[in-house]
C-alpha cells in the first residue's frame, strides 16, 4: 500500500514554520505565563500553610455555609498531612493562571459567537477539535514551542479547557429571553449596554457553569502537564507512575481530588444564582433599616394588590 496522507508531516512543517517565524511571540507568551504563575505561587505559598487554610476556610464559610468551611479546612489539613502542601499550591497556581487565561479568551469568544451565526459556525468545529483531541497531544508541540517547564503546561491547559467556557457563554447569551432583549432595544439602549445590563447578567448562571467546567478541566490537564515538567501534584503523580510508587501516587492523587472538590464547590456557589442571592441579601439588609420609618406605606396599598396575587 503506497497510499498515505502525510498529514503528520504537514502539521510538523506548519509548527516548524511557526517556531522559526513566531518565536518572539511564544517567548513573550512564555514570559507572561511564568510571571503570572510566579505571582500566584508567591501569594499562596509564601504565608504559612495554616494562614492560607484559615483564609480559604473563611471564604468557604461565606460562600456556602459552615459545612463547606469545615470540609475545606479538613481537606487542606489532610494535604498538609501527606506532605503535598507545596505541590498543591503550585498546582493551584497553575490552575488559577490557566483557568484565568482560558476564561479571558473564552467569554469574549462566546459573546462574539452568540451575536453572529457566522462566527458561531466557525467556532463550533474548532471547539470540537480542541475538546476531543487527546490531551497529551497538545503537550508535544507545546514542548517544541516553549521547552520544558511551566509555560507549555499552561499553554496546553488553556487550549484544552477553552471549549466549555465558549460554549456555555454562547448558549447562555442566546438563551436570554428574546423579549427582554427587545425591551432593551425598544427603550433605545445601545447594543453594548444591552450586553452589560441584560444579556450578561441573565446569562450569568450559564456562564458560571462554563467557568466551573473550565476550572475543572484545567485541573485535570494541569496534572497531565506534570509530564512536561510543570511541577506540582502532577509532577509527583508522573513520578509515582514511572517508579510504580503506589503510596506517593495515591497521596498526590487524593490531594488533586480534594483540590478539585474545593474549587468546584467554590465556583458552583457563584454559578447557581448564588451571586445574585448574596447581593439581594445585602440590599435587603440595607432596606430593613429604613423599613421601620416607612412601614405604613406598603400596608396602605396592600389590599388593592392582594387581589392580583390571589387571582394569579
Amino acid at each position: 500500500m503506497d497510499f498515505r496522507i502525510p498529514f503528520g508531516s504537514w502539521v510538523e512543517a506548519g509548527l516548524d514554520w511557526i517556531e522559526d517565524n513566531l518565536d518572539w511571540l511564544f517567548d513573550l507568551l512564555a514570559a507572561v505565563y511564568v510571571a503570572l504563575y510566579d505571582a500566584v505561587v508567591w501569594v499562596v505559598a509564601t504565608p504559612p500553610a495554616v494562614v492560607v487554610i484559615a483564609v480559604l476556610a473563611v471564604l468557604a464559610l461565606a460562600a456556602r455555609g459552615w459545612r463547606f468551611g469545615l470540609g475545606t479546612a479538613l481537606g487542606l489539613l489532610f494535604i498538609v498531612g501527606v506532605d503535598q502542601w507545596d505541590n498543591a499550591m503550585e498546582t493551584l497556581a497553575l490552575v488559577v493562571v490557566a483557568a484565568f487565561l482560558a476564561i479571558v479568551v473564552a467569554v469574549p469568544l462566546g459573546i462574539w459567537a452568540a451575536r453572529s451565526d457566522r462566527v458561531s459556525a466557525v467556532i463550533k468545529p474548532v471547539m470540537d477539535f480542541l475538546q476531543t483531541m487527546p490531551a497529551f497531544v497538545y503537550l508535544i508541540p507545546a514542548i517544541g514551542l516553549f521547552g520544558i517547564g511551566v509555560a507549555p503546561g499552561i499553554f496546553a491547559t488553556v487550549l484544552f479547557a477553552l471549549a466549555p467556557g465558549v460554549r456555555l457563554t454562547e448558549l447562555g447569551i442566546r438563551g436570554v429571553d428574546r423579549e427582554v432583549v427587545e425591551a432593551g432595544q425598544a427603550f433605545g439602549s445601545t447594543p453594548g449596554r444591552i450586553l452589560r445590563q441584560i444579556q450578561l447578567p441573565l446569562a450569568m448562571p450559564s456562564i458560571m457553569a462554563g467557568i466551573n467546567q473550565v476550572i475543572m478541566l484545567s485541573l485535570s490537564m494541569v496534572v497531565i502537564a506534570g509530564m512536561v515538567g510543570a511541577g506540582g501534584l502532577g509532577g509527583d503523580v508522573t513520578k509515582s507512575l514511572s517508579a510504580l510508587d503506589t503510596a506517593l501516587g495515591f497521596e498526590a492523587g487524593l490531594s488533586v481530588v480534594i483540590l478539585a472538590i474545593i474549587l468546584d464547590r467554590f465556583t458552583g456557589a457563584f454559578g447557581m444564582k448564588r451571586g445574585l442571592h448574596l447581593i439581594r441579601r445585602l440590599r435587603a439588609r440595607g432596606r430593613a433599616d429604613d423599613a421601620a420609618t416607612t412601614a405604613s406605606s406598603p400596608g396602605a396599598t396592600a389590599p388593592s394588590t392582594a387581589r392580583d396575587t390571589v387571582a394569579a
Partner: peptide, 21 residues
C-alpha cells in the same frame, strides 16, 4: 433610531420582559 425609541415610542410586552435582576 435609538434616539427616536428613547423619546418618541415605548413598548409593553406580552410576557412583561422585565429585568429579573
Amino acid at each position: 433610531l435609538r434616539e427616536i425609541r428613547r423619546q418618541r415610542v415605548s413598548m409593553v410586552f406580552q410576557h412583561f420582559a422585565l429585568l429579573p435582576h
